[in-house]
Simulated assay, not measured.
Amino acid sequence: MNRNFKIVFMGTPAFAVPSLEMLIREGYNLAAVITQPDRKAGRGHKLTPPPVKAVAEGAGVPVYQFEKIRVPEGVALLKELAPDVMITAAFGHILTEEILEIPKYGCINVHASLLPKLRGAAPIQWAIINGEKETGITTMYTALALDAGDILEQESMGIPEDMTAGQLYDKLSVLGAEVLKRTLEKLADGTLERKPQNEADATYFPMFKRGFGEIDFTKTGEEIRNFVRGTNPAPEAYMMYHDEKIKVYRVEAHEYSGQEPCGTVLYADGKRGLGIRCADGLVSIEELKRCGARCMDARDCLCGRPLEAGYVFQKRENSII
């Protein structure tokens, strides 16, 4: 098998862009790119193409868009394209057995974790929320079970203590392209090996549901700090002050031996900032965004819009941490 095998690439968000750019740069035979439809975005709700579409069109690669690729029209297109290999990266569609049987050499997925850990749709955010010290990229053969296919190549990277999910997303997207390149080179020269996943080591975390993001101050300071990092920039951590949603982008954990209930505002002023009691001490809110304002340092924000000392933040029953 040589590098002229025909590829259909499937991906949608910015995470998939470095992988697509690598395929274009390395001169692989890209028959088509398949992505999700354009969506309304921004304050003006302007119809905006997925990042993958913009890159593909710029390189002259045919682009097809489907709400669901498994519809008859999508399956028919794939059969007509007759790819040797399909590649998926953050595609967001479920592939059926009929689709997986189309490519001669299978479907390769670029997944942002060290499988079998962190299966699911949000492995980057959950790695940080869970306090993982390392994560990485896995290329795998796609199977019908979610993220359960045979492992092809893996590469790990450490997670710095102050790294946010957005920063990790950017790093892993580039690493994903590097691991995919190595995978395809081995596929081309016949040295690619596959290794079944150990189901006993598998962990799965779901995509975020509506309402996810409210901070639970009954958690430890470190758990809260990881939660805020893992939801930055999306879906965003927040806390409810009366009826106002205050978004939180950075916190620090500190020792404190007081006996106030968890969630109690210990101080809230322009000099010290905002300190809130948690399970094992206090957390200082360093960056926040109040309704109608921009993200800013808590001290600057509180100079003009103070919070009530003694107020108790209580996580609502219908929200999820």
Results as ranks from 00 to 15, higher is better:
Ala14Thr: 07
Met163His: 04
Ala202Gly: 05
Ala268Thr: 04
Met1Arg: 14
Lys247Gln: 09
Thr139Arg: 00
Ala268Asn: 11
Ala127Asn: 04
Leu274Met: 11
Ala177His: 05
Phe9Tyr: 13
Gly270Gln: 13
Asn130Pro: 00
Glu317Gln: 06
Val8Pro: 03
Glu308Trp: 08
Lys209Leu: 13
Pro235Arg: 10
Asn29Ala: 12
Arg229His: 00
Met163Gln: 10
Ala293Tyr: 15
Ala253Leu: 06
Thr220Ser: 15
Met22Gln: 12
Glu255Leu: 14
Gly42Tyr: 11
Ile94Ser: 02
Met296Lys: 12
Gly304Met: 11
Ala143Met: 06
Gly281Pro: 05
Leu266Cys: 05
Leu95Gly: 09
Pro103Cys: 06
Asn198Arg: 11
Ile108Thr: 01
Gly310Cys: 12
Glu260Asn: 07
Pro196Asp: 08
Arg305Asn: 14
Leu152Asp: 07
Ile7Lys: 03
Val71Phe: 02
Ser19Val: 05
Ala293Asn: 12
Thr183Cys: 11
Val8Arg: 02
Pro49Ala: 15
Val17Leu: 09
Phe313Glu: 03
Arg39Thr: 14
Arg305Glu: 14
Ala121Met: 14
Lys46Val: 15
Ala41Met: 11
Pro235Glu: 11
Glu80His: 12
Gly211Glu: 09
Gly270Thr: 07
Pro116Glu: 03
Arg25Gln: 15
Pro49Phe: 01
Ile246Lys: 07
Gly190Lys: 13
Thr138Val: 04
Tyr64Gln: 07
Glu223Phe: 00
Thr48Phe: 08
Pro160Val: 03
Tyr238Thr: 01
Arg43Tyr: 06
Gly213Leu: 02
Lys133Cys: 06
Tyr256Phe: 15
Lys53Met: 13
Gln197Cys: 02
Arg294Cys: 09
Thr138Glu: 01
Gly166Ala: 10
Glu308Tyr: 03
Ala127Thr: 05
Glu252Cys: 05
Gly58Thr: 12
Val174Arg: 15
Pro116Val: 04
Ile215Glu: 04
Thr48Leu: 07
Phe217Ile: 08
Tyr105Ser: 01
Arg299Ile: 02
Gly190Leu: 12
Thr12Asp: 07
Phe212Glu: 06
Ile320Pro: 00
Asp297Leu: 10
Phe313Gly: 08
Tyr256Pro: 06
Glu26Gly: 02
Ser319Glu: 06
Asp300Cys: 05
Glu223Lys: 00
Phe205Tyr: 15
Ile320Cys: 08
Pro206Met: 05
Arg290His: 13
Glu26Leu: 08
Glu73Ile: 01
Gly60Trp: 06
Glu286Ala: 10
Asp84Glu: 14
